[in-house]
């Protein structure tokens, strides 16, 4: 067990070095630097003179070729320093700390909604397998699964922010907070306001995975109900509900639990498209903005975080798999 963990960790470190190295090289080869993009594009008169640019380049380590700058960056990360954002003049760790809350609020509620809806839906589909209503529900889920998120987001925006404007059903078009919300507003009012802003993004973020999970549960249940132990359970007189949930569903939990590990990066990484459409101040949007601004330290800090989460999620998934299923061993 310990030797397996050590081997996985060592491989993960190699993978991590390769990923961050590739992204660092790519980021540095993008046309434009944070200095020219941030100052020059918005206002030509604010363009820095060449001497200043040279001085700032030196300060941020942009005068070195990317591979040697990469090792400086990697050395700092090992010492626990993610560097300072060039365009925002703040430590990258602080920026991530600011953005992680909103992203977690969004993706956490989306994940909760997904599980709360998909498990009953998947069980319902398995119980009614083959019936007309099951086919309709399954096809509906399939349609939902193929529906592009950004199209759904635009549809929902048109319906709730344009057509239902000035009705009780109106929902905010974008942002996380309304105009009237300040620090003095009561906790309850500000939470209610944030919840209203979160409705549309949460729906957009959860419906695809909801459809996918329901189909996944249904497919796994179909496999399980053909097993001998289900027949045994039926033969000894267990009711249909008990057979389905107690004997059947508990066995489909095994692959489901591992999915939890794999959803770790999405939970904290957020979604670029949804946060962009709804201007939700989360991680995905931070990443999108930092690419636009060529803010290398932020791009790298986020990439590092994403990759660590992805690798950790895979490791957790494998460990959970071995833990919940005694037939599987990590060796």
């Amino acid at each position: 067990m310990v030797s397996y963990l050590i081997r996985r960790m060592a491989l993960a470190v190699v993978t991590l070095l390769m990923i961050t190295g590739i992204v660092y090289g790519l980021a540095r080869s993008m046309p434009g630097t944070p200095l020219t993009i941030a100052m020059g594009e918005s206002d030509p008169s604010r363009k820095l003179n060449p001497a200043d640019i040279e001085r700032m380049k030196k300060a941020y380590g942009l005068d070195k070729p990317w591979y040697s700058a990469y090792f400086v960056w990697a050395g700092n990360v090992v010492r626990g320093d993610l560097g300072r954002s060039i365009s925002r003049k703040q430590p990258v760790a602080t920026l991530i700390g600011e953005r992680i809350g909103p992203t977690l609020a969004l993706s956490g509620s989306a994940l909760l909604l997904t599980w709360l809806v998909s498990i009953p839906l998947g069980l319902y589909a398995s119980a009614r397998s083959g019936a007309v209503d099951e086919r309709v529900v399954s096809f509906g889920l399939y349609v939902l699964y193929s529906f592009p998120t950004f199209v759904a987001a635009l549809f929902l925006q048109i319906i709730f922010a344009v057509w239902l404007r000035d009705t009780a059903w109106e929902l905010p078009l974008f942002g996380m907070r309304g105009d009237g919300i300040t620090d003095e507003t009561s906790w309850f009012a500000s939470t209610a306001d944030m919840a209203r802003h979160a409705v549309l993004p949460v729906i957009c973020q959860s419906y695809v995975s909801l459809a996918w999970y329901s189909r996944f549960i249904h497919a796994n249940m179909q496999e399980v109900v053909r097993q001998d132990y289900i027949r045994t359970a039926k033969a000894k007189g267990a009711g249909p509900w008990r057979v389905l949930v107690h004997h059947g569903f508990r066995n489909t939990l095994i692959p489901l639990v591992t999915l939890l590990g794999l959803s770790l990066p999405a939970l904290l990484g957020g979604s670029v498209i949804i946060e962009q459409i709804f201007t939700w101040p989360g991680m995905g949007r931070l990443f999108f903005e930092s690419i636009r601004e060529r803010d290398y330290p932020t791009i790298m800090g986020l990439t590092f975080m994403f990759s660590v989460l992805t690798l950790a999620g895979q490791l957790v998934a494998d460990m959970l798999y071995a833990w919940v299923d005694p037939r599987v061993s990590v060796e």
Binding site: L11, V14, T15, M18, I19, I22, V23, L26, A27, S29, M30, P31, P265, G269, V272, I273, F287, F288, I291, R294, I299, T303, F306, S307, T310, L311
Partner: peptide
């Protein structure tokens, strides 16, 4: 397998956005 794992680990949209910005 390492190569596959590395490319898989980089979030698709991240990789694509970086590459798109990289293209002149």
């Amino acid at each position: 397998s390492r190569l596959i794992e590395v490319v898989m680990c980089i979030p698709t949209l991240v990789l694509i956005l970086a590459l798109v910005a990289f293209v002149d």
